[in-house]
């Protein structure tokens, strides 16, 4: 990053290549849409480039990157909610009837606990559980899980205190447990 700060374009390309997959992974789970995640990632890299002169030696680049990503994603989610483009909750049904996941979950309920969990199905449930978290809980979880950040780093990236992150992650993990544990143990549909 220090080379990028000194206008080394090749170094910036290296930086993009190194972080693009990680950034898109987090953003995709955060906004729930691959195309939007790609657009936001490009926006993040553009902002990194424009702000390169403000980067201070010693600061951890990934924390800085995800601070920007957090702001960009928050803005995007806020403007999306302003446009009333709400994401359907798992229990919502549209005009075409129940969503496939609901049908799948309903069909799976009542099965024996020892049943073999289908991997794809399980992945869908996990995705749904993460998507059901609040925006800030989701970001904290993603930074912890995918980026392996400690509380202090997450706090810096999300502009919170470490204590607030501790509380945020604790609530997030309890929420995840409430959704996932009944399914893992008994194949039961998550509570509404």
């Amino acid at each position: 990053m220090l080379k990028v700060r000194d206008d080394d374009a090749a170094a910036f390309e290296q930086l993009v290549r190194r972080y693009q997959d990680r950034l898109i992974t987090v953003l995709e789970h955060l906004v729930g849409n691959r195309d939007q995640a790609e657009d936001l990632s490009q926006d993040v890299f553009l902002r990194v480039y424009r702000a390169r002169k403000r980067y201070q030696a010693g600061a951890k680049f990934s924390t800085w990157l995800f601070t920007i990503a957090n702001n960009v994603a928050s803005n995007a989610l806020r403007s999306r909610s302003r446009r009333r483009e709400v994401t359907l909750q798992p229990h919502d049904s549209g005009p075409l009837g129940p969503r496939p996941l609901d049908v799948m979950l309903a069909a799976s309920s009542g099965q024996m606990p020892a049943r073999q969990l289908d991997k794809a199905e399980m992945r869908d449930i996990v995705q749904m559980a993460v998507a059901a978290l609040g925006e800030r809980q989701r970001m904290a979880v993603l930074l912890s899980k995918f980026e392996g950040m400690c509380y202090a780093e997450i706090a810096e990236a999300m502009e919170l205190s470490p204590q607030a992150v501790k509380s945020l992650l604790s609530r997030a993990r309890v929420n995840l447990r409430e959704v996932l544990e009944p399914y893992m143990q008994h194949g039961r549909k998550p509570k509404k």
Binding site: E13, T25, E28, Q42, M122, V130, K145, L176, E181, M184
Partner: peptide
């Protein structure tokens, strides 16, 4: 809590194409 945290490993991770990198570099 530990078990439910471990299953998050099932979440998809993304990888992008060369086109994405190029477009990003073009924007920059």
């Amino acid at each position: 809590l530990d078990r439910t945290w471990e299953v998050l490993d099932m979440l998809d991770t993304s990888s992008v194409s060369e086109d994405f990198t190029q477009t990003t570099m073009e924007m920059v």
